[in-house]
Amino acid sequence: MYTQALNTAETDDRGLEDAAKAAQFQARIDAEERIEPNDWMPAAYRKTLTRQISQHAHSEIVGMLPEGNWITRAPTLRRKAALLAKVQDECGHGLYLYAAAETLGTSREELVDAMLAGKAKYSSIFNYPTLTWADIGTIGWLVDGAAIMNQIPLCRCSYGPYARAMIRVCKEESFHQRQGYEIMLTLCRGSDEQKAMAQDALNRWWWPVLMMFGPPDATSQHSDTSTKWKIKRFSNDELRQKFIDATVPQAQYLGLTIPDPGMTQDAEGHWRYSEIDWTEFKQVLAGNGPCNRDRMAARRKAHDDGAWVREAAASYAAKRTQRQTAQAAE
């Protein structure tokens, strides 16, 4: 999902640590206890979560870019206010998540620097362009819909600060999906051109959205430990299937066609989908998606442009502290 790049093998250094502590830790996880920042935890648990939560945070921040692209061109004031509010929420979600990641001992500055240096990933989905207004509807409906599917089980993640951040995020996310679906519904009830625009956006976003859930279970190297630690409660394929089953009727209601001619419904009611092009996914993660360079350039520019603000705030605070210390000494 927002942490797809997590799917790389983690070096297991638990052997170096106290086996008794590790066993006790696992017993706590198994008993559904939440792990809190000051608790003992295996180094690999800390490392995995720092990476997952910070990648999730980076995704929220980079996720503002494709939608921000349309704020000035939203078709009505109502749509513009809603989109602006949504983009503000994404920023807020990024900040909750950075705060949760920091409880594991890495500062936000370090996490952001790693992202700007290209050492930390963000979700592949934000490397696709938003070409028309219908893309904004599709992002709310599908990208946020997929994110909700992934984030609801994370509300029960074993790490307390992450779980609590997810509860807050999920509460706010519902508006995002509904505003997206409302845009789609309006377009689909509009002129032929508007409906065609909605269909075109669905055609372009469908497969990248399915890739958001990460590689298929058979090839996902990291899931076992994450499942054992109850960071992950459902596998990539399970979540993908749940998402598809929920989405197909929504598309049917809009009168749109899912761009997968091979799709069929099985006896249990699940929609069986065609093979996903994982080469494209790997290419996008490797930096070769349509907008990777744009996104990184925009983030670096924003960071550099903000440097004087951070410097000014810090030097003002330092001046005030100095003055207070001087007054106290008098």
């Binding site: 809603a82 508006f175 505003q179 679906y181 409302e182 519904l185 009727p249 929504q250």
Partner: peptide
């Protein structure tokens, strides 16, 4: 004044189900 920050501001027909 920002009622559009709430999910109920958006019209989603009942037939579509919970969202």
């Amino acid at each position: 004044s920002k009622i559009y920050r709430h999910p109920t501001f958006y019209e989603v027909p009942e037939e579509v189900g919970h969202m």
